[in-house]
């Protein structure tokens, strides 16, 4: 797994996706930080964190689009699948490389915290909880993007499909308002990525949030492994 992880992380930088992702992420988060905190004269960063959700819907598929699609297109997939490594090692090696780059990106709010601390009292505990929520959201979103990348050999298709999938996930809440059956509405609502994330930005952090996002990450990575298993047996 280590070899795949290191190669993938290196490829992020040689293919310049790392720079594009980090630049876009920091620019957008910087703007929301300026608009929501600096210009308002407050150390409350919840506006920025809430905005991050929508930004990630568009940026994470950029991060994950080439993970598997490029392997398939360049025919390097064959080397990977005939190497003495398990499918789990392959999928998680790639997954963790994307997660690492993502984590570098979301460290930026701590810099914003330092900037704000020059003007007032920063609640570092809340900032850290928000960072953790952002990280957990990423674990799930990246797993979705990884799965979609495994389904196509075209990077652009992987990106577009990934954005579409994450948009659907984002819209779960608005979907709920159209469901009249109470128990079904409740069931769908409990799958909402946004509700749990929003709760953290308001200061409510609990263990079920952690379990929810990590389970989602696990399920989507498992599905990716199944995609390769199925392809081998078809």
């Amino acid at each position: 797994m280590g070899a795949i992880y290191r190669r993938e992380l290196g490829a992020y930088f040689t293919s310049s996706i790392a720079y594009i992702f980090l630049a876009a992420f920091w620019m957008l988060s910087g703007w929301f930080f300026f608009a929501g905190s600096l210009s308002q004269g407050t150390t409350d960063m919840s506006y920025m964190f809430q905005s991050m959700f929508s930004i990630l819907v568009f940026l994470i598929p950029i991060l994950t689009m080439r993970l598997f699609s490029e392997e398939k297109k360049q025919k390097t997939e064959q080397g990977l699948l005939t190497a003495p490594v398990s499918l789990g090692e392959i999928v998680f090696g790639k997954y963790f490389s994307a997660l690492t780059l993502y984590t570098i990106g979301i460290l930026m709010p701590f810099v914003y915290g330092l900037i704000l601390s020059a003007f007032g009292q920063v609640e570092w505990g809340i900032l850290f909880a928000n960072f953790l929520a952002l990280f957990l959201l990423g674990t799930a979103f990246i797993a979705v993007g990884t799965l979609i990348s495994a389904l196509t050999e075209n990077q652009v298709a992987a990106a577009v499909l990934g954005i579409a999938a994450l948009l659907v996930i984002q819209m779960i809440d608005s979907l709920v308002s159209y469901i009249n059956i109470t128990w079904l509405a409740d069931a769908v609502k409990s799958l909402s990525f946004w509700t749990r994330y929003y709760a953290v930005t308001c200061g409510l952090f609990n263990v079920s949030t952690v379990i929810f996002y990590l389970s989602a990450a696990f399920i989507f990575n498992y599905l990716t492994i199944r995609v390769f298993e199925r392809r081998r047996w078809s």
């Binding site: 070899a3 290191r6 290196g10 490829a11 040689t14 025919k75 064959q78």
Partner: peptide, 21 residues
């Protein structure tokens, strides 16, 4: 079709394969 990563150097690639195997 040899499974080569075009953006890597020959040595970097072989080191990767060494680790992979």
């Amino acid at each position: 079709l040899p499974p080569l990563y075009l953006d890597m150097t020959v040595k970097g690639y072989l080191n990767y394969i060494y680790d992979l195997k």
